[in-house]
């Protein structure tokens, strides 16, 4: 069980690092968003799953209060999963509409797209 938790933590830390490294490595906003959103969400899922596994392991050994830990961590995971892709989409849309063009783009279907005036 301890080894299982170590493996979960290792995968999580690895992918989180990859996500932050992608921020430095990629050339423009959109590709950076790719790296940052996907990798940090995936890594955070694994680190939080490690916490959940630890909590349920504690419940199995009869330690008081670990069930609360696991359930609250799961709720944090749900909040993260719901909010992260939506935030990335909002940033991408804001960036594109404010005039940041994707670098080295092969095709840009967004050219000539008419913004409708929303009220």
């Amino acid at each position: 069980m301890v080894i299982f938790i170590y493996v979960l933590l290792g995968i999580g830390v690895l992918f989180n690092g990859l996500g932050s490294f992608a921020l430095l490595r990629f050339p423009d906003v959109f590709t950076r968003l790719h790296g940052a959103t996907k990798c940090t969400t995936f890594g955070s899922i694994f680190t939080i799953l490690a916490t959940v596994a630890y909590g349920f392991w504690g419940v199995a050994r009869g330690i008081q209060g670990d069930l609360t830990l696991a359930i609250h961590a799961l709720l944090a995971l749900i909040a993260l999963l719901l909010t992260n892709p939506t935030g990335a989409h909002a940033i991408a849309r804001g960036a594109r509409r404010s005039g940041v063009l994707p670098k080295r783009a092969v095709v840009d279907a967004y050219e000539g797209y008419k913004f409708e005036e929303e009220e």
Partner: peptide, 10 residues
């Protein structure tokens, strides 16, 4: 900043 937010939660 958004990436930092995710990392802070984890």
């Amino acid at each position: 900043v958004d990436t930092i937010n995710t990392l802070v939660v984890a």
